[in-house]
Design a protein around this nucleic acid. Structure first.
Lengths: 241, 241
DNA sequence: TAGTGGTCTAGACCACGTA
DNA sequence: ACGTGGTCTAGACCACTAG
């Protein structure tokens, strides 16, 4: 029964067989595919082997299984654009650029009323605030204005910002966090445009980001860069797959 | 042996046990966690049950397993921002807005030399070209200028654009595609600003997108919207998890 | 009632890494 | 040599869905 080509692993062989039929279009979204016992017969393996191949494909988003009914090809998920450059230093490093910071402001102060509200803190709570200008090869790339709830980053005032960003530092802390961000085209204030050395008539790209975890809002930031810059580059892929 | 709380499934119980220790920080990235046989003893189940719990967590990005060495907590992946609104009609529908299109141009014509090069086609090849203005509640939202290699969408001239976008139509076609996009802040031409009814002094958000598959470049598009608009909203999450 | 997938077991053999 | 994870089996019981 054990054939010489056994080495590749029957589980993967079965999974590949199914995936090939899906990507080729032979089996379309919504189609009922052969049952576990049918595949057991086709491949001459035990049901557990087939079952785990199917389970993997379900986790990978290729199949939907309904107990009692059968196994179906999953409807294609939405496509999403993924932006990986959430961290300026990493982004510059990826381009093999030279990084430099200028810290314009760094303070621990009382939250303004609107800030306290955004963080869902009571009036008079402490907030860490920083304004940072990031340079790539001595040209200003990004202006960052960030507020952090100091409970989540107690050593905020002491961090060495020349080698790590506040964002990457925050992301290292457990538990893993969630967030949302918004991209807009704006002009920016005179002061901001001067700091970023934005050419006349050129707009700016603004990124507003808020990050939170179960215990509350962690940080709110606004990043600004010249519209002249290469912009943000994202990758498009299926949201399951 | 079978206890009353069996119902929840031992596999998930074991997985939850491990995930809880990871998210709580008790087990940190890189840490070696108990072996399969150790967990077998702890939970009083067979090794296969433990194994499949571990396998699921590996697929979900929580663990890294090295045969012969042991099971380790995975290093946290990079954080990515995900933008789901790749399709204007879906985006407007999600906001319960009213959608309307205005097709400014729709033609099948010879590719210009630079276009042919972008598509990696030989000179004189045919290209489908469309300029489309998308309205939400009768206000212009997005101006789309798109080129498509007609081999991938033979019925491009016939598609009803009032109910589906060219993008969503393309994404339905097999095989699944990949792409990249770039966001920039621009001013836009006079004509473009007039079509989008952009207020004086307000810049525009530009999305340049290219999508391809194994057989070649499928489509190149440029989307423009007023910087006044709510912008694009993305979600931040771990790239594994 | 017959067929589906979901789960679990107790044993087996293997390739790999560490010591 | 020993322990690790990777794989597979042949059987079992369950809950669910269909005809």
């Amino acid at each position: 029964m054990i054939k010489p080509e056994m080495r590749s692993g029957m589980r993967d062989r079965i999974a590949d067989y199914v995936v090939a039929r899906i990507t080729s279009g032979e089996w379309s979204p919504g189609d009922l595919i052969p049952s576990e016992s049918a595949l057991t017969g086709i491949f001459g393996v035990s049901r557990m082997t087939v079952h785990h191949a199917m389970r993997d494909l379900t986790l990978r988003g290729f199949l939907v299984r309904r107990s009692g009914s059968g196994t179906f090809v999953a409807e294609p998920g939405a496509y999403v654009a993924e932006y990986a450059q959430l961290d300026v230093i990493a982004e510059i490093a990826a381009r093999k650029g030279r990084y430099r910071v200028e810290v314009l402001t760094r303070e621990l102060r009382q939250a303004a009323p609107d800030e306290a509200q955004s963080f869902d803190l009571k009036d008079g709570a402490k907030l860490f605030h920083a304004a940072i200008l990031h340079y790539e090869n001595d040209a200003p790339l990004e202006l960052e204005d960030r507020l952090i709830d100091p409970r989540f980053l107690p050593d905020a005032m002491a961090i060495d910002l020349s080698s790590q960003t506040l964002f990457s530092r925050l992301m290292l802390v457990r538990p893993p966090r969630e967030g949302a961000e918004t991209v807009r085209a704006v002009f920016g204030s005179e002061a901001e445009r001067r700091l970023l050395a934005v050419a006349d008539g050129v707009p700016c790209l603004e990124l507003a980001r808020k990050t939170w975890c179960a215990e509350g809002t962690v940080t709110i930031a606004r990043m600004l860069r010249s519209g002249d810059s290469r912009g943000m580059v994202g990758r498009i892929r299926m949201s399951n797959a």
